[in-house]
Design a protein around this nucleic acid. Structure first.
Lengths: 337, 337
DNA sequence: GAAAGCTGTCGAAGCGCTTCGACAGCCTAT
DNA sequence: ATAGGCTGTCGAAGCGCTTCGACAGCTTTC
């Protein structure tokens, strides 16, 4: 391993000079800088991460806590993770991958050991047990998601309430009066994951305002679960003509079932999905949808964090505005028979 | 931040004693050990990661390079990543997430800086440019995937050649003579990703041995692409009764199209998929499939790596045996008309 | 032309830990 | 009783870097 000292010797300067060339924290003459940079290149020098962290008490690592379970939104999680990793790199940070498994202990361990300078927490529950720790530590953090109480926290998320409202509005504009919501698996609601409840809130509030009838049914992914759920919905509300789906794994089964039952999309029923773009465009009917802006969320979270680490930035909640893209799965409600 | 020295003082012992309690590298009397442990608990001590890394030249971090593109196998990647992270934790390691973006430079940076003790590389291409670096560095590494030349490398992967053979055998046993393979996107083959080519190899070799007719067509995911590909296949080989699908995003579209064309699964045509279990069980027809053992691959990779870091273990290629699970999408070939 | 201010460089301290050698105190074997 | 061997503990060195204060050699200012 090449060390700073060796570079210094090779360039004929002191170690501190090399350090300052690297960090830019003091001015260095152009000639010296060039000589040092040349030596660094020639020797293939890479600063030792441990030594750096020890001396500067900065590890240049951002911790990312992802959910352990993979019962939902896997591609979204992955996209966020990748956006976080690439954005972090552009700011000189690396990303440490933590699973939710350890729970609050992971937070303690990471902040206590100085392993990471800051952390991003995904899959936040409404009353998450990690929140008190995040609030009291001096390490910056950003949540992707929205807990019940956001005081002293920085959050980034899609505005799911507005998303729900947007879906309902779209269907209402097309003349639909009876709308069914096919939601995430029951476990997701039981866990009080914020986004699911907020979407529902938006759906309900706006429906009421617009005088629509709304029926919400959670649904496991997969064909069989969807079949049962759909049967129930059509039994309870035979006049349903609008569907809002917030469960990737239910999208394709729903379309298949509707087709099978002779209900044409969008002529007889309209479907609006809340899902990644890829799912919407690759489905068997191109779906009118509100996209989950995974990449933007990841990027934004890192940028907030870097700002905080640089002493800029402050606690705030950023809710990204939803955008509804009209595709082939929604159209005017059929004329009342 | 609580330091080792403070713990030592609190427990009335020297710093080195505390260190030895923590590492277990020298014997410590039970009474002392207990006293120290008590102090650690009381003070909420966490060893400083940087200092540790510097003094021991061990960071206790494993780097995981995941592919940047998300054009295939996202859930598999995620499952591997999570398995790696959780397995690593049970051995006292954390995981650093690197995207393929930086390419070979990431390898240089990580090994040069001592950021990670070892690395796991996913999405290996047949002639990957990171391989020379991995071979010459003294840091252990494990590839998930199989390059063309494995000398001096440790690899874990599903035996995709055997997987291909297994799919063909299953269909042959059921009496199918004309088989079509719906593969990954063309880009995947152009990139010479090992698994795709190896599967194809297995499919072809075994077909030849069994006297079957085999047609391979790459396919982008999604409904439209699948429609075009299927039309082509049935045009070229109208007698096709067996399908092997190796592209998650093509599975559901294929089933929908077959249904739409009045080809019943499994009465008229059989479908065998190479995909994660979840996809197979949640599809609109429960799919006969060979599972990609993502979790096992991740776990195995970490265990190999830990063995190497402990001075045990050696270079070897481990190909996991494929297992075909018969479900509802395959059955006897229809009687020749 | 002396005081004051810059600029560019250096030396040394110290970050918190691991680990090596030393050694005190005790037990066992002769 | 004494040499030798264990066991448990300590002190000190050192890992490779950052950063602070010092200062030499300039330039500017009145």
């Amino acid at each position: 391993m090449v060390t700073l000292a060796e570079v210094a010797q090779h360039a004929g300067v002191s170690a501190s000079t090399v350090s300052y060339v690297l960090s830019g924290k003091r001015s260095i003459s152009t000639t010296t800088r060039r000589r040092v940079e040349e030596s660094i290149r020639k020797l293939g020098y890479h600063p030792n991460a441990g030594a750096r962290a020890l001396a500067s008490s900065r590890s240049n690592i951002i911790a990312l806590m992802i959910p352990l379970r993979t019962d939902m939104y896997v591609p979204v999680m992955m996209e966020i993770a990748i956006a976080v990793a690439t954005t972090a790199r552009t700011h000189g940070y690396d990303v440490l991958l933590l699973t939710g498994e350890e729970g609050p202990d992971a937070v303690r361990r990471v902040t206590g050991s100085g392993l990471a300078d800051a952390m991003i927490v995904m899959d936040v529950e409404l009353d998450d047990e990690r929140l008190p720790l995040l609030r009291e530590t001096d390490r910056p953090s950003v949540l992707i998601g929205l807990p019940a109480d956001t005081t002293g926290l920085t959050c980034v998320d899609l505005d799911f309430k507005a998303t729900g409202a947007l879906c309902v509005e779209h269907l209402a504009t097309l003349g639909h009066r009876d709308i069914a919501v096919i939601g995430e698996a029951p476990a997701v609601y039981e866990r009080h994951t914020g986004f699911a409840e907020r979407t529902l809130d938006g759906l309900r509030t706006r429906s009421r305002e617009l005088g629509l009838r709304l029926l919400h049914r959670p649904c496991e992914g997969g064909y069989d679960a969807m079949a049962a759920t759909l049967a129930r919905i059509l039994d309870e509300r035979p006049d349903t003509t609008g569907f809002v789906v917030q469960n990737e794994a239910a999208v394709e089964p729903l379309l298949a079932l509707l087709r099978q039952q002779g209900r044409a999309v969008p002529e007889d029923v309209s479907v609006v999905a809340v899902c990644p773009e890829q799912v919407a465009t690759q489905a068997s009917v191109r779906l009118t949808s509100v996209a989950v802006p995974a990449q933007e969320m990841g990027r934004h979270a890192v940028e907030q964090l870097v700002a905080k680490l640089d002493g800029r930035g402050s606690d705030e909640v950023v809710l990204l505005a939803p955008e509804l893209t009209v595709r082939a799965s929604s159209g005017p409600a059929p004329v009342q028979s």
